[in-house]
């Protein structure tokens, strides 16, 4: 693999291979920033990977009170799934169990898309005929009486099928501490990019997978080529100076958001340099035959 070097960090001549996804999201507001965030965190919990969670979701950004529809502090959460049906099912379930239940919360549409998901129209019946509909500036909302007042929820939210899931960066360093330092900097930069999320714990996944397994019936298993403890005994992709690999996985509402997030993450990791941070950056792919979106690292370098 021919290598590029930026600020002493080796960059693989590789690419991240990503897939089309259905993307949606909601803006959650609360009486204060703490409770707006609580609702969003609960709703995006257990949503790291579509494989086991049904969707990938995370907080995109905080929205200041002056930019929310009701003038309260808000948090924007994005949710991605493999089909619009899955996205709808996951969003409606999570909204009903995690946001409706969260004290003080209200929900608004925040994604402009070609399709709409009925969310308020789904949870309104919780109001047992006490719910009230209000149309304000052409948008329909539901007021559902709950024990702390009213749950206020927009009837429909947008959904786009132009979303992209699976943008990624493999951050490789000498040990856990230095690799984590670089990866955390990368995640912070990725999270600052609008319309993109990193759904794994803290934005980071340590159990990257390969397709297939030696066991029957397992579709994915540990990516042994990137496991440092197997460096000598498997067909390893790691060099002698790599002792830890962490991955940032990125989902975005648009192709542009994913590439902007990867670009920002790359820059942050490279800026830290190899002494305290990462020695090498790679990207995960399946040979380019599965996903239509290819993000070549060499095109995204600072």
């Amino acid at each position: 693999m021919s290598e590029l070097i930026r600020n002493g960090v080796r960059i693989d001549d590789s690419f991240a291979e990503a897939f089309p996804m259905s993307g949606t999201g909601i803006l959650i507001t609360g009486p204060n920033a703490k409770w707006a965030r609580q609702a969003a965190e609960t709703m995006t919990g257990f949503a790291t990977s579509v494989i086991g969670c049904g969707c990938e979701a995370a907080i995109d950004c905080e929205v200041p009170p002056e930019e929310t529809p009701d003038g309260r502090p808000g948090v924007r959460a994005l949710l991605f799934a493999m089909s619009s049906k899955d996205a709808e099912k996951q969003l409606v379930n999570r909204l009903g169990q995690c946001v409706l239940t969260c004290p003080g919360s209200a929900v608004y549409s925040t994604v402009k898309g070609e399709f709409e998901i009925k969310v308020g129209d789904a949870v309104r019946q919780f109001g047992d005929k006490w719910q009230m509909s209000k149309v304000v500036d052409g948008r329909r909302f539901w007021r559902v009486p709950v024990m702390d007042g009213e749950f206020f929820c927009e009837a429909k939210v947008g959904l786009t099928k132009k979303s992209v899931g699976g943008g990624n960066l493999l951050v490789m360093g000498a040990d856990w501490d230095s690799t984590m330092r670089a990866t955390e900097a990368g995640v912070a930069a990725v999270r600052a990019v609008p319309d993109a999320i990193a759904p794994f714990p803290g934005g980071i996944v340590r159990s990257g997978s390969k397709v297939g397994s030696q066991y029957k019936g397992m579709g994915a298993s540990t990516n042994d080529a990137y496991c440092p403890t197997l460096r000598g005994v498997t067909n390893s992709a790691l060099d002698a100076d790599i002792g830890c690999v962490l991955e940032i996985v990125i989902d975005g509402l648009t192709d542009a958001a994913v590439s902007a997030a990867m670009r920002a993450g790359l820059k942050a990791i490279i800026d830290m340099g190899p002494e305290n941070g990462a020695k090498r950056i790679g990207a995960g792919n399946y040979g380019g035959k599965l996903g239509p979106f290819h993000y070549h690292l060499k095109d995204l370098l600072p």
Binding site: T29, K134, G149, E150, F152
Partner: peptide, 12 residues
């Protein structure tokens, strides 16, 4: 009560 709806309506 402080109604969330009233806050949105006020802004509109």
């Amino acid at each position: 009560h402080i109604l969330t709806f009233a806050g949105l309506f006020a802004r509109s």
